[in-house]
């Protein structure tokens, strides 16, 4: 592990065609890293995430993704993801293959991946049309005979998460709503963690997840790198941004203009925030 720039981490660790998970369950969503994937023009990615929200809308709309593995794709509390819909309904800018699960199935697949087991097991996917449309099978309990659902483990090439802090050795700590970030890092062959702050020493926090430096390939400083989601103890969720995203993303040209101005023509997360502040003033 080394503390490196996000640009170098993405250049060295993420390749075209990779299976990539940028996880975060409404909290600590790794926007800065996702934006760097877009800047570097990654293509043919298989994107995994339980709750693809605005960040995956941006990656899909910019043509980075070939396939999406997910369980709920929307703009929470606001409405649909227009770029995701456009890709599925009209193949714009590219066709998007879907592998769709339930939250419980995705969670089990993450635990299996982190555990290096071939599949996760749960009492789920019962009835309904989802089993016929996704990768799920039935296994029989050898002890009770109960039939249970089996979902294949997630084993991404690269897992990317955002955390509050790392120390100078690259040990990482995150807290608050911790989602599936620990599982996503441990299930992946390579991992990148962006952080709000690099501190001399990590202070233990209630309910914290600690990722020792030796399970992380790159730690990158990206202050406010989870915006418009939030970092508990640092800044709140920018709910207004999520509401504003709806009209921006509804129109292809308006979306592309926005991405050009705030992502493609900015070099890093600092410039991204400066460009947003300029847009508010202008």
């Amino acid at each position: 592990m080394a503390v490196v720039s996000l640009r170098d981490a993405v250049r060295e660790l993420v390749r075209d065609g990779d299976v990539v998970a940028l996880e975060g369950f409404t909290h600590l969503i790794p926007y800065a890293a996702g934006h760097e994937l877009i800047r570097q023009g990654r293509r043919d990615l298989t994107l995994i995430r339980m709750t693809p929200d605005v960040l995956y809308d941006q990656l899909i709309g910019m043509g980075c993704a070939r396939k999406l593995v997910f369980s709920w794709g929307g703009n929470p509390g606001v409405g649909p993801l227009h770029r995701l819909r456009d890709a599925v309904e009209h193949c714009w800018p590219l066709p998007l293959e879907l592998e769709e699960h339930s939250h419980a199935g995705m969670a089990a697949a993450w635990v299996a991946g982190a555990s290096r087991l071939p599949f996760g097991v749960l009492r789920g996917y019962r009835g309904g049309d989802l089993p016929a449309r996704t990768r799920v099978a039935t296994v029989t309990c050898p002890f009770t005979g109960e039939e249970l659902a089996a979902v294949p483990a997630h084993r991404p090439d690269v897992g990317i998460v955002h955390a509050q802090q790392a120390d100078r050795h690259g040990n990482v700590q995150l807290w608050g709503i911790v989602g599936v970030q620990k599982e996503a890092v441990l299930a992946s062959a390579r991992s990148i963690v962006t952080v709000e702050e690099i501190v001399d020493e990590l202070q233990p926090r209630p309910n914290a997840v600690v990722l020792p430096s030796w399970v992380v390939d790159a730690v990158c400083l990206a202050p406010r790198g989870a915006h418009p989601s939030y970092a508990h103890g640092y800044y709140d969720r920018d709910n207004e941004f999520y509401v504003a995203w709806d009209p921006i993303s509804r129109d292809r040209d308006r979306f592309l203009d926005w991405m050009r101005r705030h992502v493609l023509e900015t070099a890093d997360v600092g410039q991204y925030h400066a460009s947003l502040e300029e847009a508010v003033v202008a």
Binding site: S71, R85, A104, G105, L122, R123, G124, G128
Partner: peptide
Amino acid sequence: YEKPRVRLPGGGGAPEIAIG
């Protein structure tokens, strides 16, 4: 499913909430 008129967000927690 393969060519939806409207792609909705998907099941999320619902399939297992419904039985759990």
